[in-house]
Design a protein around this nucleic acid. Structure first.
Lengths: 112, 112
DNA sequence: CCTATACTGAAGTACATGCTTCAGTATGAT
DNA sequence: ATCATACTGAAGCATGTACTTCAGTATAGG
């Protein structure tokens, strides 16, 4: 059985929604309240709250309540974990392709 | 309005499923037929075909039919595009954090 | 205390997803 | 021509997702 990281399920699923990617992108610029995050979004505050819960459960963001306001920020290590999964596979695929290419070149220099 | 790449929707959604991530991971090792991909998976061939269609529509894999067999491989550039989205945000968030940290250090060396 | 602000939760609804089974098509082997 | 192989497509079904509205809680300010 292959290793399987269920936290990647949640992270990729969270990032599959354009609203949530926009939230993540904006939080990379710094901490924002739920209200400020909701302002430019064309949906109810309740819907934004649901998106934020999904992002928080995935580990991509963390939040903290100060007074009656909840502030959110990204966890860049969580972003990094997802990025790493992709990077490892991509490099593996590219290396395989490079080896194949140089193999073809070595035997190709005699004919064609 | 922020820039919005709808192809990321499909790519992230495709990668949110563990079966599809396993398929991508195995294809990074080289081309495989639909049947070979299905072999270790605990579901019908039809279900595997549906996963492969989703991966292909997202651009993460490409396939080609030779005779009655369809062979699939990853598109490492598509993997790279998703990786880049994450990398750009992560770097942005980290830089912001670094600047904040050195700011705190500069004013922190007088007291505490 | 009273009111506004900033969420937070529950219920409902429309649509999407991840399977299943069964039937069908196209190709390779005899 | 016949039969097995390798998918491929359609229909059905259970569950999950992305909202909505409305009601509720908790804190800040006057």
């Amino acid at each position: 059985m292959l290793q399987y990281d269920s936290s990647l399920d949640a992270a990729f699923a969270a990032l599959a929604d354009p609203t949530r990617r926009e939230v993540v992108a904006r939080l990379c610029d710094g901490e924002l309240s739920v209200g400020k995050l909701a302002e430019p979004l064309d949906m109810s505050l309740s819907a934004v709250g649901q998106h934020l819960r999904i992002l928080e459960q995935s580990g991509l963001i963390v939040s903290e309540k100060r007074g009656r306001t909840r502030f959110c920020r990204v966890d860049h290590q969580a972003l990094s974990a997802v990025e790493s999964w992709l990077g490892e596979r991509r490099r593996h695929a590219e290396q395989r392709l490079d080896r194949l290419q140089s193999f073809v070149e070595r035997r190709g220099n005699s004919d064609d």
